[in-house]
Design a protein around this nucleic acid. Structure first.
Length: 137
DNA sequence: GCCAACGTTGGC
DNA sequence: GCCAACGTTGGC
C-alpha cells in the first residue's frame, strides 16, 4: 500500500517551514479539532505532508514527512487529542499560493479549499502531483 | 437531544 | 478589522 498524503497549516509567525528546517523535526501538537485529529491518527511513518502558511503567505511552501505516528498530545491535559512528529523534506522551488490553487480546476475538490478552517487535511495523489507541478517540480 | 449563543480560524 | 464558516457549550 502506498503512502498517504496530507496538508498541515501553520501560521508562519508561530511556526514557519523555515523553523521546521532549522529544528530538523518537531512535535505537531495543539490540534483541537476532531476532524483534524482523525487525520493525524491516520498518518503513517513516512507519509508525505504539504506545509501551508496560513494568515500570512497563504501558500504551500514546503514538503515534510511524518517522522512519528500519532501519540497522546503532551499539550492536552485532558488527554483527548493526539500529536505527530514532522520532519522537513524540502522547500518548494516556487510556493503555490491559495489563489493559484483556487484557480486550478484539478484542485477544486481539495479539502483545504472546501473546508477552510480544517488545519490537517488529506491530499489525493492527483492533487499532490498538481501542486508539485505548480511549484515547478 | 435540540438549538441558540458564543468562540475560533483564517481569508479578505 | 470584518465576517463567513464551523465547532463547542450550555440551558432547557
Amino acid at each position: 500500500m502506498s503512502a498517504s498524503r496530507w496538508l498541515v497549516k501553520s501560521e508562519p509567525k508561530t511556526y514557519s517551514f523555515d523553523d521546521l528546517v532549522r529544528d530538523g523535526r518537531t512535535v505537531w501538537d495543539g490540534v483541537r479539532n476532531n476532524a483534524a485529529a482523525l487525520h493525524l491518527k491516520a498518518m503513517k511513518l513516512g507519509d508525505d505532508v504539504l506545509f501551508y502558511h496560513s494568515n500570512e503567505g497563504l501558500a504551500v511552501v514546503g514538503i515534510a514527512k511524518v517522522a512519528r505516528e500519532a501519540f497522546l498530545d503532551p499539550s492536552d491535559p485532558a488527554g483527548r487529542f493526539v500529536a505527530v512528529e514532522l520532519a522537513p523534506v524540502r522547500a518548494l522551488k516556487t510556493p503555490v499560493t491559495l489563489a493559484e490553487m483556487k484557480a486550478t480546476p484539478a484542485l477544486a475538490e481539495m479539502a483545504l479549499l472546501r473546508q477552510g478552517r480544517l488545519s490537517v487535511s488529506p491530499v489525493s495523489e492527483t492533487e499532490w502531483k498538481t501542486i508539485l507541478n505548480l511549484a515547478g517540480g
